[in-house]
Amino acid sequence: MASLTVTDEQVRATAAKVIQPAWVRVMHWVNALAMILMILSGWQIYNASPLFGFSFPREYTLGGWLGGGLLWHFAAMWLLMINGLAYLVTGFVTGRFRKKLFPITPSGVLHDVRAALTFKLGHDDLTVYNYVQRLLYAGIILVGVLIVLTGLGMWKPVQLHWLVMLFGDYPTARYIHFFCMAAICAFLVVHVLLALLVPKSLRAMIIGR
C-alpha cells in the first residue's frame, strides 16, 4: 500500500499543474449525477419485468413505482445525453482523448495490470494515465455510447428501427442495455474505490489540482 499513499512532497510537486481542466470536472460530476439517476430509475423499470431471476431491492430504486421510474429515466436521459455528447465533442476537439487515452498497447496493459495486482502501480503523476486506466476509461466511454444507443433504440423502436436492427432485435437491445448497465456499475465500484485509495485524484477531479 505504501506506493499508493500520497506524501506532501508529491502534492506540492504537482500543485501548480492543472490536472483536470474545468470542463472535465463539470462534465464528470454532471455525468456522475445523471448516471446514478439513470441506474436507480433503470432498476425500477427492470423490476417491472425482470430479465433474470432477481429484482433490485426497492430501497435502491428511484421513482416509487414503474411510472415514477420511467419519468426519472426519461428526464435524466437528457442530462446524460447532452452532457455525454458535449464531453465526446470536447474530448476529441481538444485532443484530450488522443493525449490521455492513447496509445493503448497490449504489452502496456499487461505490464500495468501485473503492476497493479502486485500493488506496484504508482500514481505519482496524475496527468498521465497508466495503461489500465486508459483501457478502462476508453472502454467505459464505449459502453456509455452503447447504452445510450440501445436505450434510444428501445425508446423509439419504430422511428429508429435501423438502430434496433443494428443490435438484432428489440429484446436483444434490452439485454445489451442491461449488460452495459452492469459494466458501468462494475466500473463504478472499482473507480470509486481507487479514487478513495488515491485521494489526490479525487481532489484533482474537484478543484482541478
Binding site: 436507480l40 426497492r58 430501497e59 435502491y60 430504486t61 428511484l62 421513482g63 416509487g64 413505482w65 411510472g67 415514477g68
Partner: peptide
Amino acid sequence: TRRRFIAGGASLGA
C-alpha cells in the same frame, strides 16, 4: 403517484 413518490422517497437516502 405522489404517494408512491413519497413512499419511494424514504428509500432514497442514498
